[in-house]
């Protein structure tokens, strides 16, 4: 009886899969027109960056891909291995500076930044801001000083209660209101700050989970060895806590990359935003499926690459492995 049910389910699933596969094939061969993707590849990559300056975002992305591959291969040379973390940290600020017109290059306003470049810059930049802020908030929430504990907890809980789109919208709207009249920061930077403020609250909770997993004996052992509280935190507790928190931090990072797509609603032309403006073009009207499949593939690849990198890092940091 049970075996027949099993076979029935298999047959039903096969029929469904066959039907889906057949209609997909039919559409691919007869209905699909990929010109909306193929003719606009530069737009997807760098947005409306001036054509003669496109090499700058492309160079930055090439460097990013190289760095990813290098990390995944795992260099044998000691010096390269030691410098890799530093390269990762400077990547986003370097990109912002390089695109804005560092090194005496032609200044390009953030208005013409877009596509995958902007998506990656937003992810990297806000991640680099949010991680230290999140760690500070987590430490604050576990502090035995009530004022510090309450203010960190209040910040974390408030941020986690609001939807991201509201934070981003009000970041665009309110940040100028809270700044002194003469001072203005541009839209991309505002988005980056709002993202970082939001992500820090979630990162703080992940780091707090990691901190809770470290037994108090570790701190006591450090104290016995004569380490000051700060040294024990910096050298003993935090490194272990971050390693424990790494899987959930990875999820946050992937979430951050996916959530940059929300900026499309607020009019930034990152990967999804540029597609929305392309779909509004009469030449490509109605080509939704092609564009969405293409975008899904790009996001899927970027997210998977990030997850792979984090998995690699986990293996690298595994104490059982480094001890042998």
């Amino acid at each position: 009886m049970n075996r027949w049910l099993d076979r029935g389910i298999t047959l039903l699933l096969l029929a469904l899969l066959g039907w889906a596969g057949w209609s997909m094939l039919h559409w691919l061969l007869l209905g699909a027109d990929w010109s909306v993707v193929t003719t606009n590849l530069p737009l997807y990559a760098v947005g409306s960056f001036p054509a003669d300056q496109r090499w700058r975002p492309l160079l930055w992305m090439a460097a990013l891909i190289t760095l990813t591959l290098l990390t995944l291969v795992g260099p044998k040379h000691g010096w390269l291995r030691r410098w890799l973390p530093l390269f990762w940290i400077v990547m986003a600020p370097l990109g912002l500076w390089f695109l804005a017109g560092g090194l005496g290059l032609l200044p390009v306003g953030t208005r013409s930044w877009g596509g995958l470049t902007l998506t990656l810059l937003l992810t990297g930049g806000s991640g680099a801001l949010a991680l230290p802020l999140g760690i500070l908030l987590a430490l604050g929430r576990r502090s035995d000083l009530p004022v510090l504990r309450w203010s960190s907890a209040a910040y974390i809980e408030l941020m986690r209660a609001v939807p991201l789109i509201a934070v981003l919208f009000f970041g665009q709207l309110l940040i100028p209101l809270f700044l002194p009249p003469g001072l203005e920061i541009n839209r991309v930077l505002r988005a980056l700050v709002a993202f970082a403020l939001f992500a820090a609250a979630y990162i703080a909770e992940d780091v707090r989970g990691g901190l809770q997993a470290i037994p108090p004996t570790q701190r006591e052992a450090a104290a016995v060895l004569g380490l000051s509280p700060r040294q024990s935190l910096q050298l003993v507790v935090l490194p272990q806590a971050l390693r424990v928190a790494l899987p959930s931090l990875t999820n946050q990072a992937v979430g951050l990359l996916q959530n940059t797509s929300l900026m499309a609603i607020l009019g930034l032309v990152e990967l999804l935003g540029i597609s929305r403006s392309l779909l509004a073009n009469p030449a490509f009207i109605g080509r939704y499926l092609e564009v969405y499949l293409w975008l899904a593939a790009v996001y899927w690849l970027a997210c998977t690459a990030m997850a792979l990198l984090a998995r690699h890092l986990e293996v690298q940091l595994d104490p059982a492995r480094s001890a042998s």
Binding site: S261, Y299, T304
Partner: peptide, 8 residues
Amino acid sequence: IRQVPLLL
């Protein structure tokens, strides 16, 4: 599903 943005 988990590797593609919800908005998309």
